[in-house]
Design a protein around this nucleic acid. Structure first.
Lengths: 128, 128
DNA sequence: TTGACATATAACCAATCGGCGATATATTGG
DNA sequence: CCAATATATCGCCGATTGGTTATATGTCAA
């Protein structure tokens, strides 16, 4: 039942993946980086295994875990659909705002790369 | 304490975001796409709001929700770190992650007890 | 004002989660 | 074989989650 989205929801599990991104590690090596118990880590590892984000290889009495990053593809693809909202949109919006800012044109600095700022759209947050 | 990672862990909430990616929607419009109750949706929306992934604007008695995709940036950046594992050419990867092929070549060697074991990057991908 | 609608919040519930200590299983060294 | 080590699994626990129904709040129409 564990999807990659669920698996990476926990910060400890993300840390495990970050560690494994540097290379294969045994459970006890991983454990050294956390404050919780070994069974807790084994549980996290099981969740990551079930989600297809890591694989374990037995070497003697050690279990060497390594990253299986392809399991993150679904996440990457889903997020990529949203990337346009802060790339393309920042460009277009920035272009519009540049006119506005050009009005109070001053920006002396020298190397004139348009240093636009992201401005919040509306967001009339009042809430509660 | 709702982080973006936690917020997108739930498939219903991801669907909400997907819907809002097409444009602003009221709560009842969103509700039409789900089988659960209105309070359940309001809870999801609160979580998304707290995570900074959506914003609400009052329009009469409606609440128009819209996407605030920048909230997904942290996720995108984290995942991008892993993209290289399936994006980069295999040969580049092998170059980055040291002597994989040497370890593979010595596979039949035998009784030598190496302190450091072979790093396993495997996963020969050809497509993409 | 009243009543209907739109949405949020409250109170509750079962299931899941992340942690623990205890224990089971496998491997290695003596 | 035995003890030590490495890891997984079990049984338990309190907190969180995702859902429910009931109710509160705010706005529009009449």
């Amino acid at each position: 039942m564990s999807t990659a989205f669920q698996a990476i929801a926990d910060p400890s599990r993300r840390s495990v993946l970050d560690l494994l991104a540097e290379g294969e590690r045994s459970v006890s090596e991983l454990l050294g980086h956390f404050r919780f118990s070994q069974p807790a880590l084994s549980k996290h590892l099981k969740i990551l295994r079930d989600a297809g984000l890591v694989v374990a290889r037995a070497e003697g009495r050690l279990r060497m875990y390594s990253l299986r990053a392809e399991g993150l593809r679904s996440v990457a693809e889903w997020v990529r659909h949203y990337e346009r909202f802060w790339t393309e949109r920042l460009d277009d919006l920035g272009r519009l705002l540049d006119e506005d800012q050009a009005a109070r044109a001053r920006q002396g600095g020298g190397a004139g790369k348009t240093k636009r700022q992201a401005r919040r759209t509306t967001t009339r947050r009042k809430n509660r």
